[in-house]
Design a protein around this nucleic acid. Structure first.
Ligand SMILES: [Mn+2]
Ligand SMILES: [Mn+2]
Ligand SMILES: [Zn+2]
Ligand SMILES: [Zn+2]
Lengths: 151, 151
DNA sequence: TGGCACATAGGAATTATTCTTATGAAACCG
DNA sequence: CGGTTTCATAAGAATAATTCCTATGTGCCA
């Protein structure tokens, strides 16, 4: 419940403004889903959020939770953790390395850090536990997709 | 098909040795699945690997592909891309930040890089396209899980 | 206050992955 | 070599997360 930067109430005001600007209706459900996500540091899954929100709106459906979480993520009011999450992708490169991921076509390519020192675990991460590995993920638009746009 | 470090044939020998050491039988299917994964830089999904291997073993089942990919990943002969991939996790922190992920309990916590310069996209990644964001994922054992083990 | 576009609830559908079980094949042994 | 044991496979059924369908409901502007 430690606020990262803004208080819950400040963020609820940002939420209202963003909805107004984007022509998104401010429903009770939508508001409670957003409040649930920003009120925790636990990076919950949809099922967990559904359980929480049901305490205030007992009839809310799981589909509504999913639908609104996606909407909120699209408008950058919240984020989705991890990869673009379609299905499992397998990697023949068993050595530690990093990835460039094209957000448009899903292409994944390996790269090595040419500055290994810079990738040592930041001290700010060590407070949570014993680090085992560090993986850098660069998201972007690959040259192929960039070329497609130019035409 | 650019070998990261070892040739395909070298890696097939490593595979044979690892199977022998671990008491894993070397079947035709298992060998072809491994060969498919290490013969590409495309980080394919299970369906794609199944399609490839079927050219050589037309009767191979998708389940066998999944089963062996998991086995190979467990023995670190290959890797699985991305998060531990259970279900979607949502993040109330909309600002750019990084994650510590406990590989035992799934706990995810935010941290900021205290050395932002060191996280600029490495040049080795820029050859693939235009970077948009950089995300650092530190995997490890959280203090809670570490404590559990000590008892 | 009415009307309409957008949202929701609930259940059905979809899809990736895993499980079940009967059959097949490696390794081991003599 | 045959026999035996143990592990692996194929095929389809099961599971589980997520999305779709559609009838009903509701926020919001005039
Ligand atoms: Mn890789
Ligand atoms: Mn986060
Ligand atoms: Zn691309
Ligand atoms: Zn843990």
């Amino acid at each position: 419940m430690k606020p990262g930067r803004d208080t819950i109430e400040q963020r609820m005001r940002t939420f209202n403004a963003a909805c107004a600007r984007l022509g998104i209706k401010i429903t009770h459900q939508r508001m409670e889903i957003f409040r649930a996500v920003i009120s925790t540091e636990e990076h919950p899954d949809a099922e967990t959020i559904h359980r929480w929100v049901k305490k205030r709106i007992p009839t809310i459906s799981l589909d509504t939770v999913y639908r609104n979480l996606r909407l909120l993520a699209e408008t950058d009011l919240i984020a989705i953790v991890g990869m673009s999450q379609e299905n499992l992708r397998f990697d023949g490169n068993a050595h530690p390395h990093h990835h460039f991921v094209c957000v448009r076509c899903g292409m994944i390519r390996d790269f090595a850090s040419n500055a290994p020192d810079s990738l040592q675990t930041p001290k700010t991460a060590r407070v949570f536990g014993e680090p085992l590995s560090v993986h850098l993920e660069v998201k972007g638009i690959c040259t192929g997709c960039r070329g497609d746009v130019r035409r």
